[in-house]
Amino acid sequence: MTVLMQQTTTALNGQADAMVPETAVITRIQYEAPDIATYTLSFTDDHIREQYQFLPGQFNMLYLPGIGEVAISISSDPGQPGTLLHTIREAGNVTGALAKLKKGATIGVRGPYGSAWPVESAEGKDLIIVGGGIGLAPLRPAIYHVIRHREKYGKVTILSGAREPGDLLYPDEYDAWREHGIEVIVTVDRADKNWRGNVGVVPMMFYKMRPDGRKTVIFTCGPEIMMRFVVYEALARRIPKERIFVSLERNMKCAVGFCGHCQYGPFFLCKEGPVLSYDRVEPFFSVEEF
């Protein structure tokens, strides 16, 4: 059995002080759902804009002076690092203030941080990408990567779930993904009569797939409860723990392992995470209030 290695990079931040952000301008705002928008960011400094690179699954710290800083995953194509997209839901003080910003506004950005989806070690395997709600955002760079290198992967399935059809992320792109020989299964928890797609929680969609446990890799991101049941369904289909990757969320203040907030047992989720294989997090996955 091959052990998939996590890919990590350190911050590419040019500043000697990792906590000091660079400035970036919001060049485009695209509304995805009533409380979700995708922001296109462009670094003010030409050199940084040209040098900046990230791996799928990594995140940036976005800073609004006077309001605060928040960790947001990157949702754009790692093959086009100059165009930096973040899909953000209005949920707290910082994201609430971001939602009030207009095109042209300047914010602070530092990153990228954290571990990545192991897209390279998953080559040659079947891949199931499971995103729940806004959890699809950090998976999208992996999807773009796979599309770019489609021939290197076996069967690829994307499972996108949300509470209601209006909450689904990136629905306009599903057909384009399908054109690259990717099966896209979409499901919602509830819907009215106008919805013609699947209704049922994300983990139940595993009953519609027949993954080959010997050669399948899973990437999943979404509410922790959802990921827990995705893991159970995957294990029931004999997909080994070390080939199931989850992206975990904790409070993050510094993103470089100094502030201690994102600790998850031995892991700093800002460094060793957010993407971790299930065999590493299993001892803590079901511990209450961990």
Binding site: V70, I88, G132, A162, R163, V201, G222
Partner: peptide
């Protein structure tokens, strides 16, 4: 109702 406690 898992999406009610979704990530930011």
């Amino acid at each position: 109702n898992m999406y009610s406690q979704s990530t930011e």
